[in-house]
Write a protein that binds this DNA or RNA. Structure first.
Lengths: 334, 334
DNA sequence: GGGGGTTCGTCATACGTATTACTTCCCGTC
DNA sequence: GACGGGAAGTAATACGTATGACGAACCCCC
C-alpha cells in the first residue's frame, strides 16, 4: 500500500472500527472508549503517519477552518506584516490563511476565463479579512462573514482600524511646536478611508494653528511620482517649510525632490512620512513618521473575525497610530 | 431554502438529474447531452448562483488544485513579488496558492499544540514551491512533488534559480573597469546557496583582478547590523574603495556607515547592492545593484511545478541576474 | 421488421470523515 | 436469577461531487 493512510487503515492496524479512530483522534472519547484502546489507536496512527484528509473533513463538517485575506498589493512590507499577524492568531485557533491579491492580474478575470463555474481555493472559506476595498470585496463575498481592516469604523461591517487621525494630529502638533506654519501635503491619490482621514485631520490641525496654511499635491504611492508632486510644492513662491507625506515611500520621493533643489533636510525643509516602514530608518536623515502597527492590525482583525465566526459580535477596535520623531524634522529657518 | 445551492438543486431547477448537471458544468458533455439541455442547465446554475463545493470536489478527485508556497519571511517585497508571479501562473491553470511562512511563530509548533493529528490547510496540497530552505522543507513534505526556488540547481529536486554568479561577475567587472582593487564584501550571514554563490563568484573575480584584494564582514540582513559590519570594513587602515553588499537593505546600512564617517558616495566610496528592491531607487544616490526578477522566479517556478504535477519532468531553468548601474559607483580617487 | 448504431440521459457508487443511534457485555442489586 | 444501567465499542449514514456502467429512445438500412 503506497497511498496515504486513511482512518480506516488506522482502524485495521489497531484492531478497532473506523468510528473509534475518529472518536479518539477527535478527542471526544471520554467515557466512550477505554484509555487503553485510545492509546493503541493513537500509537497506530502515529506509526502509519496518519494525517486526516482535509477535504473529507471539510465536506463532513461544512466548514473549512480557513479565512481569506484580501490585500491590494501583496508585494509590500506592510501587508506582509498584516499577513504574519493574522496567520499567527489563526494558527493558534487551528485556522489557515489564504491570500487573495485583489486588483492584480491574478484576479477574478482569470478564474471565470476557465469556462463554467470555476471554483478557486479562495472560495472554500469561512470568512474574509479585507483591507480598504470595502465596496468591491463585499460584492464578491456578500454572504460570508467579513471583517474590514483599516476602513471606516462607522460602516456596516465590523472593522479594525488605526487611529490615523490621532497620529496625524500628533504629527501636526509636533510640527507646530517646532514653529512650522506653511505646510505642504503630499497626498496619496487613492480613494480610501485612511487617506481621507489623514487629509482631514491635517487640514483641521493646520487650520487651528495661528497663521497656518496648507497646500496640497497628490500622486500615486510611488517614489518617482511623489518626487514630482513634492517638486510642485517646493517650486511655489510661498514654499512650505515642511512636507507631510501620506506614506514613507512618498517621503523618499520628497527627499529626492528636496535634494534636487539643493535643500538640506531638516535644515531647509522638514519631511515626514506615514507607516514606519523599514524604509524610514534606511533613509538619511532617518524619517520622522507615524507608526502603524501592521502586524497587530492583522492579529486583531483575525481575532475579531474568529469571534464573528463564533457567533459573537466583535467590539470594534482601534489601534494606536503613534508619532515617531527621528531626524527629518526641525525648526524652520527664519 | 437559504443554504448554498448544490448541484442537486440545480438539477431540480433544470428538470434533469444531478449527473447531467455535473457533466455539463464540468465541460465533458459533448456527445452526451444535447446543446439545448446544456443551455438550460447552465441557465439554472446561473440563476441560482451555484458554485461547486470545493471540499466535495477535492474529495472526489483526490486533488486540491492548490500548491503551497513556502517562504522564509513573507513581509518582504521580494517574496511578495515571488508570490504574485506564482499566483498569476497558477490561476491561469486553475490552481490556487497558499502561503506558508516557514520559520516564523506561525510554524508547525502551533499546529501540533492543537492536540492530536491536526491538519492545517497547508496539508491539503498537490505540490510545494519552496525557497532556499531545502533540507527542512523536504523533511516535512517528503512525499509531495516540489520545486525549489533560488537553490542549488545541482540538487536532487528540480530548481529554478537566478544566475547570481553571472550577476556578481558582471558587477565585479564593472567595478574593476572603474579602477577598484580593494573590495569590501558586506556578506549576509545566512547559510543559503545563493549567498555562498555570490561570495564565491566575487572572490574569484577579485582574485582574477591584478592587484585585487578582498576583505569581508558578515551580518544579518538588517540595516543596523549591516551598518555596523560595513563600519568595521571602513575603519581598517587599508580601507576598501568599494563595498559590495549582499542585499539592497544592507547597502542602506553601508550608506549610513559611510556618511557617519564623512565619506561621500560615490566620490570617496562606491557601494553596491543586490536584488533591486524599491529601496534601490529610494536611496540617494540611487544604488548600483544586480536585479533579480523575483516575479519571474515565482512564475517560472510555478510553471515547472505544474509540469511536474502533470507527469512531465521540468527542465531546470536559470533566470538572468542583470547588472543595473546607477549612481552609487564611480572610479576611486587616487 | 429486426439488428445495430447513435444520441441523450440517468443510476449508482465511491471518495474519507464525524456523529447519531444502536448493540453487546458485564456488574451490582433486590 | 432477573433486571436496570453504565461502559465500551460498532454499524450506518450523510456531506456534494464526478464518472463508469447502464438504459431508452430513435434512425438507418438490409
Amino acid at each position: 500500500m503506497t497511498r496515504r493512510p486513511t482512518s480506516r487503515d488506522v482502524a485495521q492496524a489497531a484492531g478497532v472500527s473506523q468510528s473509534t479512530v475518529s472518536l479518539v483522534l477527535g478527542g471526544k472519547w471520554h467515557g466512550r472508549v477505554s484509555p487503553a484502546t485510545a492509546r493503541t489507536v493513537r500509537r497506530a496512527a502515529e506509526r502509519l503517519g496518519y494525517r486526516p484528509n482535509l477535504a473529507a473533513r471539510n465536506l463532513r463538517l461544512g466548514t473549512t477552518r480557513t479565512v481569506l485575506l484580501v490585500v491590494p498589493t501583496p508585494s509590500s512590507t506592510f501587508f506582509g506584516a498584516v499577513y504574519t499577524g493574522a496567520a499567527e492568531v489563526a494558527a493558534r485557533h487551528g485556522f489557515g490563511v489564504v491570500v487573495y491579491p485583489w486588483p492584480d492580474d491574478t484576479g477574478s478575470g482569470d478564474a471565470s476565463a476557465q469556462g463554467g463555474p470555476f471554483a478557486s481555493p479562495r472560495e472554500a472559506i469561512d470568512g474574509v479579512l479585507a483591507s480598504s476595498l470595502a465596496v468591491e470585496v463585499l460584492k464578491e463575498f456578500s454572504h460570508t462573514p467579513a471583517v474590514m481592516l483599516d476602513n471606516d469604523p462607522a460602516g456596516a461591517t465590523p472593522t479594525v482600524a488605526f487611529a490615523v487621525a490621532d497620529g496625524m494630529r500628533a504629527l501636526a502638533a509636533h510640527l507646530g511646536a517646532l514653529g512650522h506654519r506653511r505646510f505642504g501635503h503630499v497626498a496619496a491619490a487613492a480613494d480610501q478611508w485612511t487617506f481621507h482621514e489623514r487629509g482631514g485631520a491635517l487640514a483641521a490641525a493646520v487650520a487651528a494653528l495661528p497663521g497656518g496654511e496648507l497646500v496640497r499635491a497628490t500622486s500615486v504611492i510611488d517614489v518617482g511620482a511623489a518626487k514630482e508632486a513634492a517638486g510642485r510644492l517646493l517650486d511655489r513662491p510661498d514654499r512650505p517649510t515642511v512636507l507631510v507625506c501620506d506614506d514613507d515611500l512618498m517621503a523618499a520621493g520628497a527627499y529626492k525632490a528636496a535634494r534636487a533643489r539643493g535643500l538640506d533636510i531638516p535644515r531647509d525643509l522638514s519631511v515626514t512620512g506615514f507607516d514606519d516602514d523599514v524604509l524610514a530608518t534606511a533613509l538619511e536623515p532617518e524619517l520622522t513618521t507615524v507608526r502603524l502597527p501592521a502586524r497587530r492590525l492583522g492579529a486583531e482583525g483575525m481575532t475579531a473575525l474568529l469571534q464573528l465566526l463564533d457567533g459573537r459580535s466583535p467590539e470594534p477596535r482601534s489601534l494606536p497610530a503613534e508619532l515617531v520623531v527621528r531626524a527629518s524634522t526641525a525648526s524652520p529657518r527664519h
